[in-house]
Design a protein around this nucleic acid. Structure first.
Lengths: 223, 223
DNA sequence: AGCGCAGCTGATGTATACATCAATAGCTCT
DNA sequence: AGAGCTATTGATGTATACATCAGCTGCGCT
């Protein structure tokens, strides 16, 4: 079906924000967007409202609209919830995954291994996402999968930070192997626990993460 | 600050849907809404979009807009997630609750007891909500609390069904006491488990729930 | 020079007219 | 009579003009 201008605009902006082409705190000038996309204010307004609803954009009345700037406190809260959702996906997947999905998951892991072997961080980041999405699907709870996917999107602008911690890629891959093994043998408890920790960047690494975030300074601190 | 027509309209519709004054599947005629609220299509359209974003309304292109009709499958999925979020709130609350919040929670329980003693189902339903919200807050994770609150809203049109099961009110209250006790003694595991089961309408009761839902027939089955 | 008020400006919200598209119904042709 | 095409209609998306409101600026007053 044909997509409306508002939808295309929304997707384009979302993509820009998620992939860091528009940084948190950056101003979004409706006028400029009208010109860039050659549409009137109506669809622009609509697109922005949708982004506000999904938490990627904030509008301050009479001040302007900005790419959402998530404070460190809230970021930690969001990761806490993300960890829970991922853990739940793992738990359910361990119980409910079928042969076909298991194959898909194995393939996803292989692609992660390939990217890691090549030392390609960006590629690894992309394949990592595929691995996680495969687990979401395997939970056989479509609603949960969608919620997890959305929250992951919302965290995406900040998520790269995780992998920038030294040697994170290798650690991540090792964890993926453990997670898959747990799901493979139907160990729901282990899968849940491993995934939760995986997201929380286990234990001592978390402080590294916070420290590395802090280096971003004002970009993250303010409202 | 002054609220826009779109906001008021959105709130009014949301309230109508959540409290069952507009049943799932019911048609929302934009024209009629324009007249009822004496506004033009623009704010109506805006309000509807927001409701779509929050999942309370669905628009089928060229067919019309309707109060979201949640299929039984998805309803179960949503309750599964709700249970997880509630459990998480309980776990965190058991660790993080402070004196003041503990008092609030005790008070909320007392109000539940009063309502139960009076046999007032509606009142109990209301106070029950207060009890749960108090736990959300006590999790000290604002993001989690908000997500839980939103999902609860979305389930509200179907949630009354839970309490209609015979003697559910008494059982619910007993569970509340156990939950509070667990939080009180800082037993995170117990609080999590109890709350999760509390939402899932523990064990054998779940089939009763499904059965009672089925009696609603087509209202819940279709898309 | 500092304070305050008034008008301006730009941002936001709303109304309305117009464009577009898809579903349906009715007509025609076979 | 049935199938296919077309015209109509109603719903949706978009543009534009208008209304309203808050913040800011600049002027004047003390």
């Amino acid at each position: 079906m044909k997509r409306s201008n508002a939808q295309r605009l929304r997707d384009a902006l979302e993509d820009d924000i998620i992939n860091g082409r528009r940084a948190p705190g950056e101003r979004l000038d409706p006028e400029a967007l009208c010109q860039d996309f050659e549409v009137s204010r109506t669809p622009v307004r609509e697109a922005i409202q949708q982004l506000v609803a999904s938490g990627l954009v904030t509008v301050t009345p009479k001040k302007g609209t900005f790419v959402a700037r998530v404070g460190l406190d809230q970021l930690i809260e969001m990761f806490e919830v993300m960890a829970e959702l991922e853990g739940m996906c793992g738990r359910l997947a361990a119980r409910r995954i079928n042969e076909e999905e298991l194959v898909t998951l194995h393939e996803a892991l292989v692609r992660c291994e390939t990217a890691e072997a090549a030392g390609d961080t960006n590629e690894y980041y992309y394949e990592n996402e595929g691995f996680h999405h495969a687990i979401y699907s395997a939970s056989h709870n479509g609603f949960l999968a969608e919620e997890a996917r959305q929250l992951k999107q919302r965290l995406k602008p900040y998520r790269r930070l995780q992998l920038q911690v030294r040697k994170r890629m290798g650690r991540s891959l090792a964890e993926h192997r453990e997670i898959l093994a747990a799901i493979d043998r139907g160990d729901a408890e282990a899968a849940e626990h491993l995934l939760r920790e995986h997201v929380l960047i286990q234990g001592e690494r978390f402080s590294d993460f916070v420290a590395s975030v802090r280096r971003f300074g004002a970009q993250l601190d303010a409202v």
